[in-house]
Simulated scan of single mutants.
Amino acid sequence: MIAVFAACAAALLSTAAPAQDRRQNAAGEFDFYVLALSWSPSFCEQASERGNAGRSQQIQCGGRPFSFVVHGLWPQYERGFPEYCERPAPRLDRRIMNSMLDLMPAPGLIYNEWDKHGTCAGTSARTYFEDIRKARAAVRIPPDFIDPKETRTVTPAEVEDAFIKVNPGLSSSAIAVTCDRTRLTEVRICMSKDLQFRACEEIDRRACRRERLEVPPVRGG
Rank of each mutant, 00 (worst) to 15 (best):
Y128F: 15
C208P: 03
G220R: 06
I189E: 02
E202V: 09
P216V: 12
R91Y: 10
A125K: 06
C200L: 06
R181V: 05
S173N: 13
L37S: 04
Q58M: 05
R212P: 02
D161Y: 07
E113W: 03
Q46C: 07
N112S: 14
E160V: 03
L103G: 00
P75G: 12
V34G: 00
A10K: 12
A27H: 11
R188S: 02
R198G: 09
S99G: 00
Q57F: 13
E130Y: 08
S173L: 05
C8T: 02
V154N: 08
R64P: 00
D21T: 12
A19N: 09
R152N: 09
D161P: 06
G62S: 09
A157L: 06
L37D: 01
H71E: 13
S42D: 07
V69N: 05
V34I: 11
G80P: 12
E113N: 09
D31F: 14
A47W: 05
T123A: 05
C208Q: 04
F129G: 03
R205W: 04
P18E: 10
L13E: 15
F68Y: 13
P82T: 08
R152P: 07
V166Q: 01
G28W: 10
Y128W: 10
R22S: 14
K134L: 14
A162Y: 06
A89H: 03
Q196F: 13
R152F: 08
Y128P: 02
A106Y: 06
G51V: 10
I164W: 04
L73D: 03
F68G: 04
R23Y: 11
R209F: 00
R219P: 02
F5I: 15
F43N: 00
N98M: 08
V177Y: 07
E29S: 14
G122H: 10
R23D: 09
P90N: 11
F32G: 03
R209E: 07
I175D: 02
D31H: 14
S48W: 11
I110D: 00
V166M: 01
D102R: 00
T123M: 09
A17D: 09
I189T: 08
Y77E: 11
H71F: 09
E202G: 04
D194H: 13
D115M: 11
A176M: 05
L73S: 02
P216N: 08
A27R: 10
L109C: 12
V139D: 01
I59M: 14
E150P: 04
V187L: 08
L73P: 01
E150M: 11
I110M: 06
P107N: 07
C61T: 03
H117S: 13
C44R: 01
S56H: 02
R95G: 05
A16N: 03
K193W: 06
N112C: 05
L73W: 00
R140Y: 08
S171G: 15
W114H: 01
R91K: 14
A157S: 13
L170C: 13
R95S: 15
C44W: 04
Q58L: 08
I164G: 03
D31P: 12
G221W: 05
D161S: 15
